[in-house]
């Protein structure tokens, strides 16, 4: 396959960026999108140019590092991560636009790499449980109803990639935060911090400069892990409940 790429190039956080055009040839439909970019970078290095910087790690769809907006879609046209997107989803001769996540809470570091530490701070604000350390507890000591376990697992699938923020026209992080809150709030292990968790994580999310949710549903459409849109309503329910309990309306 031969492709026309238009890629966002930006030297560093303070520099102005622009789309640059590249042609790549000899792409196999079996390559992943990142392997296609590797091919481009090899050529750029041979030509003595600066290779395109992009985030990646596991390349098997579980770490959440890869993060490209491809033709206006976070993670591209398939419902998966960029690393699990294959070139067979494109046609020979296509022009493909590649841009970084766009959000003021995710500033561009270089080219296609953005700084997602805002997510880490949201997690630090309450995305944990307090347990005594020591030997592993007896597995049957804390029974969890099947439905709750399923719900916790569904939300635990979030890999923190940030595609929800990138896809949201408001740059809102509600889907991510709701996945993290619901994951722990439905479990007995998470119940000691049930109220502070949702209040603190939402407060941190707001402080990071993410936009407000207008329920456009773009996040859940882009999410590679299928975190469902009603999770946002579930987090709102938890938040309202925690506010009531705290006597703050």
């Amino acid at each position: 396959m031969k492709l026309n790429l238009r890629v966002w190039r930006q030297r560093n956080a303070d520099a102005d960026g622009a789309m640059a055009t590249y042609e790549v040839d000899g792409i196999s439909p079996d390559m992943s999108f990142l392997e296609m970019l590797d091919t481009l970078n090899e050529e750029l290095i041979l030509r003595g140019e600066d290779p395109v910087a992009f985030d990646h790690d596991c390349r098997e769809g579980i770490c959440g590092a890869c993060s490209l907006v491809i033709n206006g879609d976070a993670h591209g046209p398939e419902r998966t991560t960029t690393c699990q997107l294959h070139m067979r989803s494109f046609r020979d001769g296509d022009t493909i636009d590649v841009e970084p996540w766009r959000a003021s809470a995710f500033p561009v570091v270089k080219d296609l790499v953005v700084d997602r530490s805002a997510f880490d701070r949201v997690i630090q604000a309450g995305g944990y449980i307090s347990v005594p350390t020591g030997a592993a507890p007896e597995a049957h000591a804390t029974p969890v109803p099947k439905a709750d376990a399923d719900s916790a697992f569904e939300h635990a699938e979030c890999i923190g990639c940030g595609a929800c923020v990138a896809a949201c026209p408001n740059g809102s992080a509600m889907l991510f935060t709701s996945a993290k809150v619901n994951h722990l709030n439905v479990l007995p292990q998470g119940s000691p911090e049930r109220e502070t968790r949702v209040l603190d994580m939402v407060a941190q999310m707001d402080a990071e400069g993410f936009g407000g949710c207008t329920l456009t549903g773009e996040c859940a459409t882009a999410c590679p892990k299928g975190i469902p849109l009603p999770s946002i309503s579930a987090m709102n329910r938890e938040w309202l409940r925690a506010r009531r309990k705290a006597g703050r309306g």
Binding site: R6, W8, M19, V69, N71, G72, D97, E99, R102, A103, S104, A105, P169, N170, G171, S172, G209, F210, G211, G212, T214
Partner: peptide, 11 residues
């Protein structure tokens, strides 16, 4: 919301 997405997508 507008402040949270200061740079629009080209595509």
């Amino acid at each position: 919301d507008i402040k949270a997405r200061p740079t629009a997508y080209v595509h």
